[in-house]
């Protein structure tokens, strides 16, 4: 009799628990999604309260391509075009190149001047609230979003947080991992002679690119002054100083991620260079000597530039072109739904 009572009690408890779950936000069972970066990439840090799942990634993807995200028709994919590695050919507001959306999952500093920090969720919170100024009333009155956020996040009222979390889910999956260089690292491709010579220049003291464009992420995600300017006439040229107001941060910018760099039309924070040839020439002979020039760039014999020959410059550029990932720019899982 006692045993029967215990079983009955357990059944009632289980039933009550299930019912409670069902009442609590119409949550559907979400499908866990495993993000698989290449084995040689650093471990990805994912917040425990935003574990990837198929449904939320899809929702973030919808938002990424949805002009309803703002009240003036702006949305992520408007400037971040997939065929260009999620950047675009024009400068944003004719002021700065659009930073590519690639491998953001490993970043903790964002924007040219490092003005945003934290997780992808933090960045996306800034994007929806401050950049796009998403109209929550409008979003909450879109039946599809209302229903999806209710099902996936269990909320009756969508806030910036849920918008940011959904967008972080999608952007975290945007991983470029099939470039020729990636395949080379996996032993699945070989470089031409010029590319290999360029790789040596990149990864030795000759070019010394690797200290900031670290392998394999191709950016250390930190702020550096690379001697672009000796006078900071424009506010934007002051870089990280605009964030910290510390003179040592004058002219410092976040290391650009070089994945798909050959697809870009503008380089540096103000788009002053229009080709990889111009960029390499700047490092070869155009750097300004400023007091807070990155210590790495004060190497003896290199303070006036890398002094590469024409052939070496060509080889370095050939190597930079191996960072182009044709899969990334055509992968339909990143395209509009």
């Amino acid at each position: 009799m006692k045993r029967f009572g215990l079983i009955l009690f357990l059944i009632v408890v289980c039933f009550a628990a299930c019912k409670k779950s069902s009442d609590n936000g119409n949550l559907i069972k979400l499908t866990p999604y495993k993000i698989v970066p290449p084995a040689f990439y650093p471990d990805m840090v994912i917040p425990s309260d935003n574990e990837p799942c198929v449904e939320k990634i899809k929702l973030g993807r919808m938002l990424y391509y949805d002009p309803q995200l703002s009240n003036d028709g702006r949305y992520c994919a408007q400037c971040h075009l997939q065929q260009l590695g999620f950047t675009q050919t024009d400068m944003y507001l004719n002021v700065m190149p659009v930073l590519p959306h690639v491998n953001l999952a490993w970043y903790t500093n964002y924007m040219w001047d490092g003005s945003q920090k934290g997780s992808l969720e933090d960045l996306m919170f800034f994007e929806v609230k401050d950049f796009f100024k998403a109209d929550l009333n409008k979003i909450n009155n879109i039946p599809q979003y209302k229903s999806l956020f209710k099902s996936y996040f269990g909320v009756d009222k969508i806030t910036y947080k849920e918008l940011a979390y959904a967008m972080a889910q999608f952007t975290r999956t945007m991983i470029s991992k099939n470039s020729k260089y990636d395949k080379y690292l996996l032993g699945e491709a070989s470089l031409t002679n010029d590319e290999e010579e360029g790789r040596k220049i990149f990864f030795t003291e000759k070019g010394d690119c690797f200290h900031c464009h670290t392998n394999p992420m191709l950016s250390d995600n930190l702020m550096h002054n690379t001697g672009l300017d000796s006078l900071y006439n424009k506010e934007a040229d002051k870089g990280h100083y605009n964030v910290t107001k510390n003179n040592l941060d004058l002219g410092k910018f976040r290391t650009a991620n070089l994945h798909n760099v050959a697809l870009r039309s503008y380089f540096m924070h103000d788009g002053r260079y229009k080709s990889l040839e111009e960029v390499v020439e700047f490092y070869n002979s155009g750097m300004r000597k400023v007091s807070n020039l990155d210590p790495i760039m004060t190497k003896p014999g290199k303070v006036n530039g890398l002094k590469l020959s024409d052939q070496e410059k060509y080889q370095l550029i050939q190597f930079l072109k191996t960072f182009t990932d044709n899969t990334y720019i055509s992968d339909t899982s990143f395209s509009a739904l």
């Binding site: 040689f40 650093p42 471990d43 790789r199 990864f203």
Partner: peptide
Amino acid sequence: GYLPATNDNVNMEWPSSM
């Protein structure tokens, strides 16, 4: 590759060419 591939360890790598 001996150490876990954290951002810190990856940024500390010494190039294979060297």
